[in-house]
Nucleic acid binder design. Structure first.
Length: 418
RNA sequence: GUGGCUGUAGCUCAGUUGGCAGAGCACCUGGUUGUGGUCCAGGAUGUCGUGGGUUCGAAUCCCAUCAGUCACCCCA
């Protein structure tokens, strides 16, 4: 029983699994840099009101999941529950819209939501977030989706689908919303769900309880009620995706948890994660900038959950980035410790990943450490070797060992490791 | 916020009707004083999640609580 443990809903990422985490971040961000997206960092906490206005008062995220605190100056601040609101704030505050549009940004960082933890859902989680701001070109929607798919492809991920739909805009959604509300009013629903139908009827469509889902089979869907502009936009997005050779599933009942989404909306759903199956998702948010006091500019982006992507890789037995072992392990004997310390530094400086047996445990213990380090070669160096100007180079896989001149050791090892 | 399951060694887990706290793996030492991975011998390791109750006696039964886990609501 230890005194402290990681707070509820959080976890530590330890080696060797942490190398997979680093590989995930690299694989997911590399395609962004080749597509003109610039890295941005924003604070991990923001004015509470930013999230209330940006994410939406009616969302669960804002109404019950925020880590909100008052600082010593009496300000109400909140640990960010998602990344888009902070990026939009920076976009507006620094008038990035004054330059050429669209502005393309990405970031990676921690997010916090006070939720009951379960598989794939934690109170602290990491997302990679990408945003293209200031253009409503449907080709940009396709680019954003293609970038996510390229990232997954980098990682070798296969068992997921792309769920796609359009949520309409300010012109067509209100009429649809009324129609949906009228439909929902006729159903047998519990009080909670009824309340949700009043506040945000679209979200009821997402209900997984069989008794509710059964009643929703014939519910009206947004994609059948799009106005001409939205329909044309959505058709264009799908055409670009097709031309890029990408596939997706129409998901007319797809609902996202944040209020700011408009038009194109998508989610990447993996089949190996349990109930929290979405590994990433996003969409267009054409009203968000204006809502936060900026110019009336459109935007589109996605967030990919790093932790959930890790779970997805695990489900597919993929371990990108694994390895990371040293190549060479040095075993000193007798009075050769100083020589071994210097040799270690020399090999490292020449680019050979090297570790040293610490702790003076004796030859047997040091060889055991060499074996467990995963190194391909052990270098045994003792008084006799130094006197002869050599070191013993032992191949730990085959057990073969021969003496190599010390002054040519770097070259010898590089040849053996090549 | 609601519900199910689980808490015993570093890890995976046994533990009988309530009667001395166990195994495998891992770790350490030695067999082999200049050689690991195999083998043999030996060794260390516990708030039985925590607090209370019942009992001569509790890892075991009862209550509470905390944590983990999965699911619901919701979301990455």
């Amino acid at each position: 029983m230890t005194l402290f443990s990681a707070p509820k809903g959080t976890f530590d990422v330890l080696p060797p699994a942490s190398s997979t985490m680093l590989a995930v971040r690299e694989a997911l961000t590399a395609p962004l840099r080749t597509a003109g997206y610039g890295y941005i960092e924003t604070p991990i906490f923001e004015d509470t009101a930013l999230f209330a206005r940006g994410v939406g008062e009616s969302t669960d995220v804002v109404s019950k999941e925020m880590y909100t605190f008052t600082d010593k100056g009496g300000r109400s601040l909140t640990l960010r529950p998602e990344l888009t609101a902070g990026l939009m704030r920076a976009f507006i505050e620094h008038k990035l819209y004054a330059g050429p549009l669209p502005i393309k940004l990405y970031t990676v960082g921690s997010n916090f939501r006070y939720e009951r933890p379960q598989k794939g859902r934690y109170r602290h989680f990491t997302q990679i977030d990408v945003e293209a701001l200031g253009s409503d070109d449907p080709a940009l929607d396709a680019e954003i989706i293609a970038l996510a798919l390229a990232a997954y492809d980098n990682l070798g991920l296969k068992n997921f689908t792309t769920q796609l739909t359009s949520l309409g805009d300010q012109n067509c959604r209100p009429a649809y919303r009324d129609k949906l509300q009228a439909f929902l009013a006729e159903l047998e629903l519990d009080a909670d769900t009824r309340r949700r139908a009043e506040i945000n009827p679209l979200r009821v469509l997402d209900d997984k309880r069989p008794e509710v889902a059964a009643q929703l089979v014939d519910a009206p869907v947004m994609s059948a009620h799009l106005c001409d502009d939205c329909k044309a936009h959505y058709d264009a997005v799908r055409q670009y995706l097709t031309e890029l050779g990408l596939s997706w599933q129409e998901a007319p009942k797809l609902v996202r948890g944040l209020d700011y989404y408009t038009r194109t909306t998508f989610e990447f759903v993996h089949n190996g994660l349990g109930a929290q199956a979405s590994i990433g998702g996003g969409g267009r948010y054409d009203g968000l900038s204006a809502q936060l006091g900026g110019p009336d500019l459109s935007g589109i982006g996605w967030a990919i959950g790093v932790d959930r992507t890790l779970l997805a890789l695990e489900a597919e037995d993929l371990t990108p980035g694994e390895g990371g072992n040293v190549a060479v392990f040095i075993v000193p004997m007798g009075q050769a410790k100083s020589a071994a310390v210097q040799l270690t530094a020399r090999l490292r400086a020449s680019g050979i990943a090297t570790d040293l047996a610490y702790g003076d445990r004796g030859l047997k213990g040091a060889m055991k450490a060499a074996n467990r380090s995963g190194a391909r070669y052990a270098i045994v160096i003792g008084d006799r070797d130094i006197a002869d100007g050599v070191a013993q180079v032992k191949n730990l896989e085959t057990g073969e060992q021969d003496a190599a001149p010390l002054d040519a050791l770097v070259t010898t090892l590089k040849e053996k490791l090549a």
